[in-house]
Design a protein around this nucleic acid. Structure first.
Lengths: 407, 407
DNA sequence: ACTCAATTTGTGAAATTACACAAAACGTTC
DNA sequence: GAACGTTTTGTGTAATTTCACAAATTGAGT
């Protein structure tokens, strides 16, 4: 290049940011591929709320990232090596700015942002920004290598936790500190099951998504065949279960929305404080997935082990009813009647029980008149010799219906 | 004795009954200790409905026996060797009569009844009746010996059935025929648990009671330590489960009422047709007893294996929750709250669930205002983070409450 | 004794449910 | 297609439940 202002070497990214800032006369921010702040210029104090928030939190706020995805800015940056202009988005305090992605071969390593506070960058300056991006490349590669090495250590540690390879809690805590993670005082393990083996690209997408979600904090993550396993800190979260649920649904939604990755099934463990229980948590999360495999419809909305309810017991119940082979007398009668008379008493009963014995709701779901349902219930209790006011009987029917479904 | 009209030997009891009838000028009936008809006089055709029913059915009708117990007649006969006069009881078609018991040492072998249709027996005739009783003694002892031998065969056969010692159904049916019992087309096994080891007297009382109950038919019975085991035919009974339930309660009530034997626990199996399933039935009946031992309060009214409901699964559930040691999060929260604030939320929840979520009934049992209960339920769902409209959650709580109870 | 929050009880209106009855629809059998 | 029993739906009323709100009670802490 004939006129590259950034040929000179530089020691730190901060120094470099200031240099670019001086050339372009606007504040500069450099981020990694996961939108973590790497450096920002300080010689210019004009700025906007989004930049302040980024600098304070050492990362781009989640809502800003969301907005940039929605506006198509990030997809463009990931597709093109040219600078892209972003219009003001007032709601999130984002002023006009220009961004460019930093590339190594076919991979994006990070981004440079230039705020257009008072002036708009011309074509030449845009070009200059592109050159700046090229100049940071090597620095970012170094950083990435360092990070990869650390990442490997994380992986190894996480698998040790998941398999209870570390015996004492002290040992675990030491290891946490060694990796510069503060051990969580309460945590959970989540597992996401994908519909295909996860490739390198998927891994990157996942890592990206996990890094940009700020709460809850994903301390460790790893991928095993079709499963993504997360170790989640719940420190300082008031309603951990709510949060976990929201997170699980959010993650799945974003994976689909941003990367078109579909049909992910999620499961997470109870909340524990004892770091020796990571393996147990892992098992719990996988139990949730296993229940969802067996009962796709009924367990669709259940993600947490806590919420499994009766399905916590489903395995032993299946086993027991298999060995004893005791069909439920009432169900047998109803099934016989259904077959003979072309009726749907069994289904009716199940819907009724699913809706907590609420005639109105059940009738709605069945698309029949309330009185019809009442009539059927009367027949059901006659034919099946069931007392629908007896919780023991109802619960047994509920369980046996679910069990039957599995066979 | 100076003047015994019955010194002469006689061939059959029938002949003897006629002889006595002629001496006393009134119809005579002879029964064994279990009120089965042994013989009756025919030379006199004056009679009353109770006697006709006895002769037709070859046994004294149950309601007549009941009445005689209530009037104190049978207890007196079992206590005294003297003839006893019975006043007319119109409701059961019983005319005036005199009865005397037949003794061998301290044991009653049977009874002789003399109807006072037109005349009343004088003292001399009463004495004569007593002599007649003495004269039948030897004949009855013979009968009893024969019966005892048969009884032993029954016992052996029953234990073979209970332990699945006979392999093919054909074998079983042949054995039934050999013992002159017609194999039932449907049956059940019932077990009664007594609070003490059963002695010879108890056995007799039990045998007596079983013989006098006409429906359902007890084909076989045996005693094992503190347990009475029955093999019950359900042929020709429309609502077998109802009948069994009624029978179990009746048996316990009568044992107490007549013999003062208390705190009997009853359990019976499902109804089966396959005679190869006697052992399974026996196990089922014992399972009921075992549940009642573990859950005396909740299973008090449950006698049938069919009605066990969730308690059918209780063993595996206990085991599962033991190995996993997963306390229910909601219950834990509620227990903590109860302890801290001196409240009864857990109990409230249980009563509520026991009453099928019926606020009114539950409030009644708890002796609080309906609104109080509603308030508590609201607190319960807040504190325990429970959705009381979700059947899965409710069922889980129900199960976990019962499980907790067991610990 | 006072304060405070939590709990209990009372009241009444609105919503929901239970139930009886009649009419209509449906499917089967002859 | 007529006759039959079963099922579905509509209507109306009585009973019950739900819910909000106010008042009274409790009990622990100061």
């Amino acid at each position: 290049m004939k006129n590259d202002p950034f040929r000179a070497s530089f020691d730190s990214l901060e120094e470099f940011a200031d240099m670019v800032s001086e050339v372009l006369h606007c504040p500069i921010t450099i981020e990694d591929a996961n939108h973590r702040l790497l450096a920002y210029s300080t010689h210019d104090d004009r700025t906007d709320p989004a930049r302040i928030a980024t600098i304070i939190g050492r990362r781009v706020p989640e809502k800003v990232i969301n907005s940039l995805w929605k506006e198509g800015v990030i997809p463009s940056l990931l597709n093109s090596r040219d600078p892209i202009r972003v219009k003001t988005v007032d709601e999130i305090g984002l002023g006009n700015r220009v961004a460019v992605s930093i590339w190594k071969n076919d991979e994006v390593l990070g981004f440079i942002w230039a705020l257009e506070i008072e002036k708009t960058l011309g074509e030449e300056e845009m070009n200059c920004l592109k050159q700046a991006a090229d100049a940071t490349k090597n620095k970012l590669i170094q950083l990435q290598n360092r990070k990869n090495k650390k990442e490997e250590q994380f992986q190894e540690f996480f698998w040790q936790l998941l398999t209870s390879h570390l015996s004492t809690n002290e040992e675990i805590i030491n290891k946490f500190h060694a990796l510069q993670i503060s051990p969580p005082s309460s945590f959970a393990v989540a597992v996401f099951q994908f519909s295909k083996e996860l490739g390198r690209d998927d891994e990157k997408h996942i890592a990206y998504l996990l890094k940009t979600i700020q709460m809850p904090k994903i301390l460790l993550h790893t991928i095993d065949h079709q499963q993504l396993v997360l170790f989640i800190s719940l420190d300082g979260i008031q309603k951990p279960v709510n949060k976990l649920n929201a997170f699980c649904e959010l993650f799945v939604a974003k994976m689909k929305e941003r990367f078109g990755i579909d049909s992910i099934v999620q499961g997470y463990s109870s909340v524990y404080s004892d770091l020796g229980k990571v393996e147990k948590s892992y098992k719990e999360a996988r139990t949730v997935l296993s229940v969802k495999r067996k009962f796709p419809r009924e367990a669709k909305e259940i993600h947490g082990y806590q919420s499994l309810g009766i399905y916590k017991y489903i395995d032993v119940l299946i086993e027991k009813s298999g060995t004893d082979q005791n069909e439920n007398y009432s169900l047998k009668k109803l099934q016989e009647y259904d077959k003979k008379n072309n009726t749907d008493l069994v289904e009716t009963l199940e819907v009724f029980l699913n809706h907590d014995s609420n005639v109105h709701e059940a009738a709605n779901q069945l698309n029949v008149h309330t009185n019809t349902l009442n009539y059927r219930l009367k027949r059901i209790s006659e034919i099946g010799e069931i007392n629908l006011k007896d919780p023991n009987q109802k619960i047994t029917l509920y369980l046996d219906l679910k069990l039957e479904k599995f066979k």
